[in-house]
C-alpha cells in the first residue's frame, strides 16, 4: 500500500481537486484506492456525493474505538472508496495529541487497511499542525500544489523544511504548479522555470480551467467526465509523473 498526501500549507490552491482526480486515475488503472478526506470542510466528500459524517466522529477513529474500515463508503466509481470528512476533524490536532506517539497515529490506523487498498490518497486540511506532521510521516509521497507567484519558491522551501524536520523517514515530495493561467506571462515563465530548476517540481502544470471549477457542479472528478479536456490530460500526466517519482 502506498500513501499519497495531497498537501499544502496554503488553502484554495487545488489540493482537493488534485486528490480527487489522482485518486480516480489510480482507481481507473485497476488499483484499489481509498481517498481519506481529512479536511473538515469536506470538499472531496462533497465531490463524491458522500454524506460528511463519521459515526462517533474523529475521536472514535483516532482512538481506535471505531474500526476505520467500518467508516469507509464506496464512491460511484470502481475501485475507489472514500473515508468521509466529519466536522469534528477541525479538532483532529487535539484528538491526536491525546494519543500516545500522535504523529505516528495516522500511519498506524492506515496500516490496518494495507490488505484492502493499493493506494491511499489523503486530502489534508491546509495547515502546519500535528495532523500535517502525522500525514507527512505516514505518506510515501507528498503531492503539493503551488500557485504560480513570486513567492512560490519560498513556499516550496518551507514545504521542504517542514518535511525534513518531521520525524521518521521523509516521504518523496512532488510539487506541481496549479491554477496556471497561460495568458499570464509570469505563470508561463514559472511553469517553465521551476521544473527546470527544481527536481521536486513536476513538469506538468495544472491549468486554470472552467472544467475544473465545474467539478463542484458535476460532483465528480474532471478526469471522469471530460477525459480529453486539457485539465484532465494534465492530471493524467501529473499522476504518471507521481507514480514514477514515488514508484507507485
Amino acid at each position: 500500500m502506498r500513501i499519497v498526501a495531497s498537501y499544502s500549507i496554503k488553502g484554495g490552491v487545488g489540493k482537493t481537486t488534485a486528490a480527487a482526480n489522482v485518486a480516480w486515475l489510480a482507481a481507473e488503472s485497476g488499483q484499489r484506492v481509498l481517498l481519506w478526506d481529512l479536511d473538515p470542510q469536506g470538499g472531496a466528500t462533497y465531490l463524491f456525493r458522500v454524506r460528511p459524517k463519521v459515526k462517533g466522529g474523529g475521536e472514535a477513529l483516532v482512538s481506535g474505538r471505531r474500526d476505520l474500515r467500518d467508516a469507509v463508503k464506496a464512491s460511484d466509481f470502481d475501485n475507489l472508496d472514500l473515508l468521509p470528512s466529519d466536522f469534528s476533524y477541525r479538532n483532529l490536532d487535539l484528538l491526536l495529541d491525546a494519543q500516545k506517539k500522535p504523529t505516528r497515529r495516522l500511519g498506524r490506523l492506515l496500516d490496518s487497511m494495507a490488505d484492502e487498498y493499493d493506494v491511499v490518497v489523503l486530502d489534508c486540511a491546509p495547515s502546519v499542525s500535528l495532523v500535517s506532521e502525522g500525514i507527512v510521516r505516514a505518506a510515501d509521497l507528498v503531492l503539493a500544489p503551488l500557485v504560480p507567484a513570486p513567492l512560490s519558491v519560498r513556499t516550496l522551501d518551507q514545504l521542504r523544511s517542514f518535511i525534513a524536520e518531521a520525524k521518521g523517514p521523509a516521504p518523496d515530495l512532488l510539487a506541481f504548479l496549479s491554477m496556471v493561467d497561460r495568458r499570464r506571462r509570469l505563470h508561463r515563465d514559472l511553469s517553465e522555470q521551476l521544473p527546470n530548476e527544481h527536481q521536486d517540481v513536476a513538469a506538468t502544470a495544472i491549468p486554470m480551467a472552467s472544467v475544473v471549477e465545474q467539478m463542484g457542479v458535476r460532483r465528480a472528478p474532471v478526469v471522469a467526465w471530460a477525459r480529453t479536456a486539457p485539465a484532465s490530460v494534465a492530471y493524467r500526466n501529473l499522476w504518471d509523473e507521481a507514480r514514477l517519482h514515488a514508484k507507485i
Binding site: 481507473e28 488503472s29 485497476g30 484499489r32 470502481d78 475501485n79
Partner: peptide, 8 residues
C-alpha cells in the same frame, strides 16, 4: 463480491 477490477 468484487475484490478487484483492472483494465486489460
Amino acid at each position: 463480491q468484487r475484490i478487484s477490477r483492472q483494465p486489460i
